[in-house]
Design a protein around this nucleic acid. Structure first.
Lengths: 108, 108
DNA sequence: TTGATATATCGTAATATTACGATTAATATA
DNA sequence: TATATTAATCGTAATATTACGATATATCAA
């Protein structure tokens, strides 16, 4: 127990859930918002901006990188992170597809 | 440790993260899709449809009820669940707001 | 009333997440 | 070369999540 039974669900359901999970932490929301507001940002800026420890920020960045929504580029001794526009737009499409306008005929 | 430091973030960031968290499990995605496809559904249908134990489904339903996206109505000995259209639309708006079209000037 | 059915809740084991200090690795600068 | 800076990774403690059996509760049907 304690382990999600992915085999019970479709690939689409598992993938959407994984995407949402990566976005479901306030620090990761804040990181994305910060990157967007600056177009790009240095990892270290986030450490000072958010107040969490460097190791924690790095871990959150890793999770965002895992779903591809951000990418990092080494610039000398620091790393510049930015949104991967293609992935961002794809996620937007998938969410819009899920949150399609529902027409409720009967309710409860 | 192990506890999200909500005080570091804004109410909006925490709320959006909580909403996404409630949606970030394939069983809960599947439950919502099933309810939508049927307009409404009996809890017991989900137990048979998804293959998870009754206690597990009940727990997932509770999490969805917690963010208000579904509501349940007692019908004799069973409970009919349906989407709360108002909350559904509100979440859709919030997600669209977050996933606003970004205009990337510089990248990395 | 008795038994069947449906659902919520409790208790709990297995696993995952969150956070951070310490360490490592890589580059920049003195 | 030695030192500082930046960020990733490791190890680990605290907490949360997931899943399920067992039990409690409520309604229906005989």
């Amino acid at each position: 127990m304690g382990l999600t039974k992915k085999e019970f669900f479709t690939d689409e359901q598992n993938k959407l859930a994984a995407t949402l999970k990566a976005l479901s932490h306030p620090a990761r929301i804040a990181i994305l918002q910060h990157i967007i507001s600056q177009d790009a940002c240095i990892c270290n800026d986030l450490v000072h901006e958010l107040g969490l420890a460097q190791a924690t920020i790095s871990q959150h960045l890793k999770e965002l990188k895992n779903i591809g929504i951000i990418k990092g580029n080494i610039e000398g001794t620091s790393v510049c992170y930015c949104i991967d526009e293609k992935v961002w737009k794809q996620i937007k499409i998938e969410l819009n597809h899920f949150f399609t306008d529902i027409k409720i005929e009967k309710s409860c």
